[in-house]
């Protein structure tokens, strides 16, 4: 990149405060997030958690809605397949979002922007690790207007 362009990229990176919306299933990953809290682990404040009864409650509409409203990354965290409190919930999540993730990538959305993770209630440190790694990859991507609704201005 030419020097001027590079400066612009760096400067825009400074103010770049990525926002990551995390849909966490109430029985496993939400409890994992609680465990990360009780064990005083540290992950960035850009991660904001929405509680859903099961990862199978999250619809592709919500994912696209989050991207529209300015989220830079969306993550759906559920129980390990087989451990779902509702016994088959996350099997459907796995199928639905394997296809949906491929479709997003096919349409040109980076795979780092949309992730699914299986985090059990006993894996506080995995929760923190996943969130830290996600933020690093989003930071590396830098700001991008993909899927974002221009009319929705997010107060920094």
């Amino acid at each position: 990149m030419s020097l001027k362009l590079e400066e612009k990229a760096i400067s825009s990176k400074q103010q770049f405060e990525p926002l990551i919306v995390a849909f966490c299933c109430n029985w496993c990953s939400y409890a994992g997030a609680d465990l990360a809290g009780t064990s005083r682990l540290n992950y960035p404040a850009n991660i904001k958690i929405i509680k859903v009864p099961c990862s199978c409650r999250v619809s592709p509409n919500f994912v696209l809605r989050a991207f529209q409203r300015g989220a830079d990354g969306v993550i759906i965290a559920g129980c390990h397949p087989g451990d779902c409190h509702y016994s088959t919930g996350n099997y459907f999540t796995r199928r639905r979002f394997t296809l949906f993730a491929n479709l997003l990538e096919y349409v040109g959305i980076e795979r780092e922007k949309f992730k699914i993770e299986w985090i059990s209630a006993a894996e506080g440190n995995k929760f923190a690790t996943v969130m830290n790694e996600m933020l690093d990859s989003i930071n590396k991507l830098g700001p991008s207007r993909k899927l974002r609704d221009g009319r929705w201005i997010r107060q920094q």
């Binding site: 397949p81 099997y91 796995r94 199928r95 299986w118 995995k126 690790t129």
Partner: peptide, 21 residues
């Protein structure tokens, strides 16, 4: 296909991250 599942479906999200089971 989206109305059913198999227990051993392909799982692209199962990175064996530290702390995983």
């Amino acid at each position: 296909p989206l109305g059913t599942y198999k227990v051993d479906d392909f799982d692209p999200f199962d990175g064996s991250k530290q702390g995983g089971k």
